[in-house]
Every structure is written in structure tokens, then in C-alpha cells.
Design a protein around this nucleic acid. Structure first.
Length: 114
DNA sequence: GGGGTGACGCGTC
DNA sequence: CGACGCGCCACCC
């Protein structure tokens, strides 16, 4: 079921991103187990089989800029959703130092009890 | 079965 | 300080 691929893990992390917060590909990749999976994270979100449960709009690149190839209906759509969550993103750029998701526990997967 | 690409990140020159 | 290359995994052809 989940051993299918690392994708499952990536989706799991993205789904746990709290509202009003954004995360970077590298961060998700690190939480997933390997920071080198950044590329896989991008692909995982690209596949985004469950956009309603996987807020990929809360996922931005290392620069805090939203992806240019958003698949929800336009990059503008991502900005709308982010602002709706309380994350201002002028020009599609988010203040990572203010809204980056960094309140997660170190033992993220250790405390996991879903 | 093999090769190439991709919504990235980091290191080094 | 800026720009370039390399590395990782998965999916598509």
C-alpha cells in the first residue's frame, strides 16, 4: 500500500503542513528521509493524485517562490490559496523566514502515531 | 530493458 | 557576490 514508493511518504509530509504555513521541497524531502529527494518531491507533487488532501500550493521552492508549473489551474490559483491561509505571497514570493513550516518536532516520524 | 527528463537543493568555481 | 554542475529518485517513451 504505502511501500509502493517514497511518494507516499512525501504526500504524508505535505498533508501535515499546517494552514498559514509553507514548506520547501528540500524540507519535505528531508522529512521524507532524504534531502536529495527534492526532485522526487517535485515529481510527487506534479503527480498530485489527491490535490484536495495534498496542499501542494503550500509547497514552494528554496527561494520561497511558488512553482511556475502549478497544476491547479494556474500559479495565480496557488497564490489565492496561500493568501486564503494567511500567507501573503506578493509576486508569488513567500516570506520563508516568517511563514516557513519549521514548528515540526525533530522526531517527526518517531512521534508519528496516526 | 534502457535512456532521458523533471514542479529542486547544495557545493564549488 | 554570481553562475554552473552535480546528485538523488521516480515516471514516461
Amino acid at each position: 500500500m504505502k511501500e509502493n514508493s517514497s511518494f507516499q511518504k512525501i504526500y504524508e509530509v505535505v498533508r501535515r503542513i499546517p494552514a498559514g504555513t509553507v514548506a520547501t521541497y528540500g524540507q519535505i524531502a528531508a522529512l521524507a528521509g532524504n534531502r536529495h529527494w527534492a526532485r522526487v518531491v517535485g515529481y510527487a507533487l506534479h503527480a498530485n493524485p489527491d490535490p484536495e488532501h495534498i496542499p501542494c500550493y503550500r509547497v514552494v521552492n528554496r527561494n520561497g517562490q511558488v512553482s511556475s508549473a502549478f497544476a491547479f489551474g494556474g500559479k495565480n490559483r496557488q497564490i489565492e490559496l496561500l493568501e486564503a491561509d494567511g500567507v501573503p505571497c506578493p509576486d508569488g514570493i513567500v516570506d520563508l523566514k516568517k511563514y516557513q513550516w519549521k514548528q515540526f518536532p525533530l522526531s517527526y516520524f518517531q512521534e508519528q502515531e496516526v
